[in-house]
Design a protein around this nucleic acid. Sequence first.
DNA 1: GCGAGGAGATGACGATTGTCATGCCCGATC
DNA 2: GATCGGGCATGACAATCGTCATCTCCTCGC
Lengths: 201, 201
Amino acid sequence: MIRVLIAEDQAMVRGALASLLGLEDDIEVVAEVGRGDLVVEAARTARATVALLDIEMPGLDGIAAAARLASELPEVRSLILTTFGRPGFLRRAIESGARGFLLKDAPAEQLADAIREVDAGQRVIDPALAAAAIAEGDSPLTEREHDVLVAAALHATAAEIAAHVHLSEGTVRNYLSGAIRKLGARNRAEALRIAAEKGWL
Amino acid sequence: MIRVLIAEDQAMVRGALASLLGLEDDIEVVAEVGRGDLVVEAARTARATVALLDIEMPGLDGIAAAARLASELPEVRSLILTTFGRPGFLRRAIESGARGFLLKDAPAEQLADAIREVDAGQRVIDPALAAAAIAEGDSPLTEREHDVLVAAALHATAAEIAAHVHLSEGTVRNYLSGAIRKLGARNRAEALRIAAEKGWL
DNA sequence: GCGAGGAGATGACGATTGTCATGCCCGATC
DNA sequence: GATCGGGCATGACAATCGTCATCTCCTCGC
């Protein structure tokens, strides 16, 4: 019997996935959580063997949850199930120790098979997405450029960004300028769109 | 027997919802589509009585699909099932003839009951969301301000926006200025965030 | 010790943006 | 037909933004 934990913040989808897996006679859903920071605890007490993790979750995102599982409960295999096929997400997920990466666009029948393969120790990755991730390459952004860009997504003006990342306003503009150039954008709003699309935020 | 059509673009979620509804013995899933523009056709041939519609779909969004159903197949009751509790979405959904509005955050057990109520001719609306929609009021934006804001979300510079909506660059800035003031924002990026949050785009 | 190089800051610049006053055109209303 | 208001445009202005050259620290490697 494969003991599965489901981590997904939308209760309706969580319940629906559980019902989908309930149809399989070699799979048992032993835990359901709606927040990323409850994953490790629930996986331990329910003795899960596979963790099905959404990325967008409150508390802790699915990639970070996979990293914690890998370090604290390495016998639990993580399978990321997410909406967005951002190459950067796939890369970070694999680096975090996830064993599989599945899109919610994939047909429902594929889920149980993917769980079985991950449970058997194999890796499950959408081939097209893997190719895209390799072609995409890594983020060209410096760590500071990345931080400033993230702050720019939350705060409107350069002065606010500067206050939030503890830099001077001019330096913020310098980093933003670098990010804009590297991303081929024409202003910070476009740079944010591009970075978000590629999963580099 | 309640004959349900499921319209949801993410195949995995669509299949999971179908499996969830399959557990109910008075509900039958008679059609599944992944695009909004296939809803009316599928509902007609499958003789559905309730349409479960996601909002974010390619081809035609769920709200527009509900409007088409209401005019072409008025005997089919629409139930919107969506991720975002944006008050503007609820308002537009109801105006489009939808009979229910459910969030994916709601517990899975609620789905079958909501479908039964909608099928029986009742309305199903999350009370908290309804209150928020009433408190929120309607969008304060002019039709032109709305158009320009939408164009601003796609095109980066004022000149590009102007070309896209067939206005002069100065006029575009005037409308953006009005939208920024009405939304309490401090620049166009913040105005876009606020409008998107409230479902006014 | 010393040079290289990265992080951060500064100041200047031109371009873009946000704001405002003003004017024109046109359909609606009285 | 006069008036009003909305849609659209223009021009001017200050503030902000994007870019660049330059400077100071600090750290690392030799």
